[in-house]
Amino acid sequence: MYIFGYLRASTNDQNAKRAQDTLKNFVHDKGCRIAGWYIENESGASLQRPELLRLLEDAAIGDAIIIEQIDRLSRLDEQSWFKLKEMLYKKELKVISLDLPTSHIAFAPQITDEFTSSMIKAINNMMMDMLAAISRKDYQDRRRRQAEGIKKALEEGKYLGRRADLDLHEKIYQLRVINKLSISDTAKLTNVSNRTVIRVAKKLASDRSIE
């Protein structure tokens, strides 16, 4: 069984690699290692995620996927979640999630008793469904609150759109452009993705060369 790490963040301003060391240490403590990483900045509410689909394509029968939380794998609606589960089932892929203790049974010796094995799988699948539903509701609630907040601000004439984090952008500029740190080191120090470092540093360097 190969174990593949899947890491996801919703936006380019978020660091998708944040939990990488946590997953690596967890697997190492179980006496195993992670064979490969699939990392992306995509919404969990969509099944059209290039790295997730690539993982599903690369994995062989009986392999495992490890994630930090179920919401990293899914904030999908019911139909899309069912489709993803079918894709996992087709290759008999195990999903190991740090927030789902019943999924950690994948590291245990194979259970030979058919009834016990079936019961554990049923409980684990039920818990996965529950956590996926909670993740979806959390996503919908946040979207609703955001829309309500924007609507209220518009009515009061206060909505100015999303403002960039100027302090964060300045820190990225200072580290990357002025102090010549590498892209990866700057990303780690500011807790953003490599793509965000490149975008912000390039924009501010360009803007300030014109001034």
Score class of each variant (00 low, 15 high):
A60T: 00
E57I: 09
K85N: 12
L93E: 01
E57M: 10
I61C: 00
I67F: 01
P101H: 12
L84I: 12
L52M: 11
R54D: 07
L88Q: 10
D99K: 01
R75K: 03
L88G: 04
E51T: 14
L84H: 12
K85G: 12
A64W: 00
L93C: 00
A64N: 05
I67S: 02
R75L: 04
S80M: 02
M87L: 13
W81H: 00
R54N: 00
S74T: 03
L52D: 04
A59G: 11
K85Y: 04
L98H: 11
P101K: 14
K83C: 11
S97D: 03
A64V: 01
I65Y: 10
R54T: 15
S46P: 06
K91I: 07
E86F: 08
I67V: 15
W81S: 12
I66D: 03
S46Y: 07
I96Q: 08
S46V: 07
D58I: 00
D99L: 15
L52I: 09
I96P: 06
T102Y: 03
Q48A: 01
I96K: 05
Q69E: 00
E92Y: 10
A60R: 13
H104A: 13
D58N: 00
Q79R: 10
I96G: 10
R72C: 00
S97W: 00
L100V: 15
G62M: 13
A59P: 08
S103E: 04
A60Q: 02
Q69D: 01
I61Y: 15
Q48H: 15
L52T: 02
I61E: 07
S103N: 08
L53I: 13
L100T: 08
L93I: 08
Q69C: 11
L76Y: 10
L84A: 14
L93S: 02
Y89G: 11
K83P: 05
H104I: 11
L53V: 14
D58P: 05
P50W: 09
I70G: 11
L98T: 06
D77P: 01
K83R: 11
S74Q: 02
K85A: 12
K94C: 12
E57T: 14
R54G: 05
L98D: 10
K83W: 05
H104Y: 06
L73S: 13
E68T: 06
F82D: 15
I65G: 07
E51R: 14
